[in-house]
């Protein structure tokens, strides 16, 4: 990319968006049958898969908490997620940092005290990286947790904003992200007075512009949360419809081994 303009004189960005425009959002829930809850989340070309297992008994007993659930998180980037092959080593430090960011955000969101002595595993895999992966990861993880029916204080929505060529830009893609400007990643609880649960910033930014950029990022988060809500509602509706259809279908279905039939019968009288 030539050291060119990130915002054209017409006010369009490299990918044709306006400065305050999000990339196209897409989300799919329940994509993995083995996971308790799973979600695929896309922000433009960034594509992230999240899977939640649990709540289940704690695997390592020394880590067990009498009062709340513990949350384990694993973040990984698929080797094919970036165009150029990345060297390992430094990338792992980045992965640890993002893992911590995701875990921190979800620990503040999940009502862990309702599930004492249990463990929740969250796996996040970046399938395609095009900037804003940590935000996409948080959004995907949130949807997967919601799909797993784990009680949450609120939805959590995340979005980044940057500042290039004296313009605040919403939801930076990879090219803009590597432009060397500041990048502020924010996650909020939208129904909780937009309470900020995560704020990370790369590069320095004047305090006045920071406020502008933060405001823009929070507005982006709100838009993302609206989208997530809609998707969750659609998914629940589809599930309910499928369940109704299923109940009408199998009247005599469900042949277990005869032991199990008896077990079910025990509570019938």
């Amino acid at each position: 990319m030539p050291a060119a303009e990130y915002v054209s004189p017409e006010g369009l960005r490299l990918d044709g968006r306006r400065p305050k425009e999000l990339r196209q959002l897409r989300a799919e829930l329940g994509v993995l049958s083995s996971a308790t809850g799973s979600a695929l989340f896309e922000m433009g070309n960034t594509k992230v898969l999240a899977a939640v297992f649990g709540p289940k008994p704690v695997e390592q007993r020394s880590q067990e908490d009498e009062k709340r659930a513990i949350i384990k998180c694993e973040y990984a980037m698929a080797t094919f997620s970036t165009g150029e092959r990345r060297r390992r080593g430094k990338a792992d430090r980045r992965a640890t940092e993002i893992t911590m960011a995701i875990r921190n955000t979800l620990e503040q969101t999940i009502l862990t005290e309702l599930l004492p002595r249990s463990q929740i595993d969250i796996y996040v895999q970046v399938l395609q990286a095009d900037g804003g992966t940590r935000c996409a990861c948080i959004n995907a993880a949130c949807l997967a947790v919601a799909a797993a029916a784990i009680p949450m204080r609120d939805l959590v929505a995340s979005c980044a904003a940057g500042y290039l060529e004296s313009t605040p830009l919403l939801d930076l893609n990879y090219l803009e992200d590597s432009g060397g400007g500041p990048d502020v990643a924010v996650a909020i609880h939208p129904n909780y007075d937009n309470r900020v649960v995560l704020l990370q910033q790369d590069n320095r930014l004047a305090i006045e512009t920071f406020e502008q950029v933060l405001e823009l990022a929070v507005a982006g988060c709100r838009a993302v949360s609206g989208f997530m809500r809609e998707r969750l509602q659609e998914h629940t509706q589809a599930l309910a419809a499928a369940q109704d259809a299923g109940e009408q279908d199998d009247v005599g279905g469900g042949d277990g081994e005869d032991d199990d039939d008896d077990v079910m019968g025990v509570d019938d009288f």
Binding site: M152, R153, M228, R229, Q237
Partner: peptide, 21 residues
């Protein structure tokens, strides 16, 4: 259909059942 964090009712008028806080 509601999603986490959505306000359902005033706590002075209703009791909180399962799936709510």
């Amino acid at each position: 259909i509601v999603t986490p964090g959505e306000r359902l009712a005033l706590s002075a008028e209703y009791d909180a059942g399962t799936g709510t806080c």
